[in-house]
């Protein structure tokens, strides 16, 4: 399988007092087409920084990042915004749905950002919501949805513009075990397909079973890569 995302020697420094602090140390990682890769590790190990860099939100201090052959590291802010708009789907831990928009309108936002009219985009988003079993809730405001339902709207929002790269930040952190499991199942079923890479940041070992591969991070480094079912099982049990 070809790599959708490739990171080589990625390092990231943040300012700290008079100097800087390095939070990522020479990360080498590729995410292949049609796979779901989980980034796991303790809080503060650099998982979120790494997906922010892969998604073009933060720029790396060192190293090279390519998404579908495009150099992401050296993008200027407008080009980075265009890259995210066209290439990346996002699922946030807190969902970040706009409270005044319906589920369908929320799911339609990436299409609106790309220039479609809100009503037309919402019609397309309904189809995606239907696929996630949310058709009956398409006209509801977020305040009338449960956590699991809001996460499914967030998944629909990440899928609606059919991006080749999806990043998820702790998608089950705000959900109970059953809802979290269901959200991961739907993410796996709907998002993972040839031509697309999905990276999920989590420290919930109950969802490790949904991964094709798992990269475990500690102190800004990838310290372990589970690449087959047996290795994933071992990591889950550990």
């Amino acid at each position: 399988m070809s790599a959708v995302v490739t990171a080589r020697g990625v390092a990231k420094d943040f300012p700290s007092g008079d100097g800087t602090i390095r939070v990522l140390h020479g990360i080498d990682l590729s995410v292949r087409s049609g796979e779901m890769l989980l980034l796991v590790g303790p809080s503060g190990c650099g998982k979120t920084t790494l997906i922010s860099i892969l998604a073009g939100i933060l720029s790396a201090t060192e190293g090279a990042i390519e998404v579908l052959g495009q150099d992401v590291r050296h993008l200027k802010p407008p080009a980075a915004a265009r890259f995210r708009r066209e290439t990346v789907g996002f699922i946030f831990q807190q969902y970040n749905l706009l409270p005044s928009l319906t589920a369908a309108e929320n799911a339609a936002i990436p299409l609106v950002i790309r220039g479609e009219r809100l009503d037309r985009a919402a019609r397309k988003a309904r189809v995606v919501l239907d696929g996630l079993g949310m058709g009956a809730h398409a006209d509801k405001l977020p305040k009338h949805l449960s956590g699991g339902q809001m996460q499914r709207v967030a998944i629909a929002r990440a899928l609606v513009h059919d991006p080749p790269f999806i990043v998820c930040d702790e998608p089950t952190a705000a959900l109970d075990a059953a809802s979290g499991h269901e959200a991961m199942r739907q993410l796996r079923e709907s998002a993972v397909r040839p031509g697309r890479a999905v990276v999920v940041v989590t420290h919930d070992p109950r969802v490790y079973g949904f991964a094709d591969r798992i990269a475990r991070m500690e102190d800004g480094r990838i310290v372990e890569l589970a690449e087959d079912a047996a290795a994933i099982r071992r990591m889950t049990e550990h």
Partner: peptide, 10 residues
């Protein structure tokens, strides 16, 4: 912030 992350320009 979410909109900006999703690619909304300044």
């Amino acid at each position: 912030g979410a909109l900006k992350a999703m690619g909304v320009s300044n």
